[in-house]
Design a protein around this nucleic acid. Structure first.
Length: 441
RNA sequence: GUGGGUAUAGCUCAACCCGGUUAGAGCACUGGACUGUGGCUCCAGUUGUUGGGGGUUCAAAUCCCCUUACCCACCCCA
């Protein structure tokens, strides 16, 4: 006991007690409602995949793969990993089930836990939850725009609005290398003005220099070449098409020349939905802390092929469920009552009629908390009150002997007959209570 | 991996700065007033190795050191 009481949840992995789990559930219900309106269907992929799926798909050099995966050996020596994100798995499933042949245009969404071994902080956890959507088989930027529109629609549906949608284009395999070199030589030119981290980034990932938060770095890269200005003709046309499609959907967005996304597989379109800045930074006070990205996404036209499928264009996004929940006004809503009726059995010979009544009510679709414990009336009424039940059904020894049951209104509202408590035969009680509930509702 | 902050009852906190008897309050919980009936009120009760270890001192929740956990931030990202 002494030792076991020290067991806590693993760092960065948290329990969701009813008050928070309800917010998650409501958000997921909105996800299903909104996404299905856009023709998306839910997929569920395993939490564990072969490690090489992620190292090949997300990129060997990314922080996620290089140092944040929960990796272990299976009994046969295969390296497995807890998924750090869901896109690679979705692509694997798309290929594995031959979607390219049977149903090349797939619109999928998912929700579930992801795992990254990072230092936890506000809005960033080792087990966290993402909601995401992917469209396979369409290269036209109208798909990108529709996806963003769905994201904005979804955020609004859970009460989160006022976010900022930033978009950018990273180019493709044809134009990105040249841009990367141009940016790199620019960065080398201003190296003395950059921070230590950025000095390193010039070699490891020059695009990252652009989104450094430090003011000196931002000033130094003020006139850095932007990827949007170095696109090949096809990518430029795609980006222009994206903007007109966003206009067509009526979304407001900002072209963010500094926006870079961390996963290797992105090409062309990238986008990010970020929360309004917190009050101390002059925003309207949305409390997300330093992790203000609610959702991120982009196009990954090369990924299906990289993972062994036939070339298939694709776009997707992922939303941080914890972050969305923090911003949702639902987080402040009180937990609604769990049941409408409280059935209590008090004393000898009362269990059977009371249990039959509870079952009868539940069969009629009425939620019931049943108390057959050895406590007295007072204690059970206290429980009944706390449960939030509107009606209490009491089977005491006296009632059981006479084949009846007492029905009491727990609210100010009276029973149909005008009294607060009535006695009805147990056999009729379920039907009677059902009508009472209809009146009290 | 690197910084900073915090740690007192189940929860929110007081007492710490300036060491001084049995470490308090509200909420919650249990019981009673009300012999088989909740809410409101009143009364009573339970709850702590003051995160852990060491040191200073006649005396440590309080001062010092170490350690652990959590939080926040860097990094990175949802």
């Amino acid at each position: 006991m002494a030792e076991i009481s020290n067991i806590r949840s693993v760092k960065g992995m948290h329990d969701l007690l009813p008050a928070s789990s309800r917010v998650f559930s409501r958000i997921e219900a909105e996800m299903r409602r909104v996404f299905s309106q856009y023709g998306f269907s839910e997929i569920r992929t395993p939490v564990v995949e072969e490690t090489r799926l992620f190292s090949r798909g997300i990129g060997e050099e990314t922080d996620i793969v290089a140092k944040e995966m929960y990796t272990f050996l299976d009994r046969d020596g295969t390296s497995l990993s807890l998924r750090p994100e869901n896109t690679a798995s979705a692509v694997r499933a798309y290929i594995e089930h031959g979607m390219a042949v049977s149903d090349p245009v797939a619109r999928w969404y998912y929700a579930g836990p992801m795992f990254r071994h990072e230092r936890a902080q506000k809005g960033r956890y080792r087990q966290f939850h993402q909601i995401g959507a992917e469209i396979f088989g369409i290269s036209d930027a109208a798909a990108d725009a529709e996806l963003m529109h769905m994201l904005m629609d979804f955020a609004a549906a859970v009460g989160v609005s006022g976010g900022r949608l930033g978009i950018n284009s990273l180019g493709c395999a044809a134009c990105r290398p040249a841009y990367r070199e141009a940016l790199k030589s620019f960065a080398v030119g201003v190296r003395e003005r950059l921070c230590e981290d950025c000095g390193r980034r010039i070699e490891t990932n020059p695009l990252r220099v652009l989104d450094c938060k430090k003011e000196p770095c931002r000033a130094a890269t003020e006139n850095a070449p932007a990827s949007a200005d170095h696109l090949c003709a096809d990518c430029a046309a795609h980006f222009a098409r994206l903007r007109s499609a966003l206009d067509a959907f009526g979304d407001t967005y900002e072209v963010d020349r500094r926006m870079v996304r961390g996963l290797d597989y992105y090409n062309r379109t990238t986008f990010e939905l970020s929360a309004a800045a917190p009050a101390e930074e002059g925003g309207d006070g949305a409390g997300l802390g330093a992790q203000n990205a609610i959702a991120g996404g982009g196009r990954y036209d090369g990924l299906v092929e990289i993972l062994g499928g036939r070339p298939t264009p694709a776009v997707g996004f992922a939303v941080g469920l914890e972050r969305l929940a923090m911003l949702s006004p639902w987080a402040a809503d009180p937990l609604p009552p769990a049941v409408r009726v409280f059935v209590m059995a008090v004393g000898e010979g009362t269990l059977e009629p009371a249990a039959a009544l509870a079952s009868g009510l539940r069969r009629r679709g009425v939620s019931v908390e049943f108390d057959g414990s050895d406590k007295g009336f007072k204690a059970k009424f206290k429980r009944a009150d706390k449960s939030g039940a509107v009606v209490a059904a009491i089977v005491g020894e006296d009632e059981a002997r006479r084949g009846v049951c007492a029905v009491k209104s727990m609210t100010a509202a009276m029973l149909p007959g005008g009294e607060k408590q009535a006695e009805v035969p147990v056999a009729d009680a379920a039907a009677y209570i059902e009508t009472v509930l209809r009146h009290e509702a």
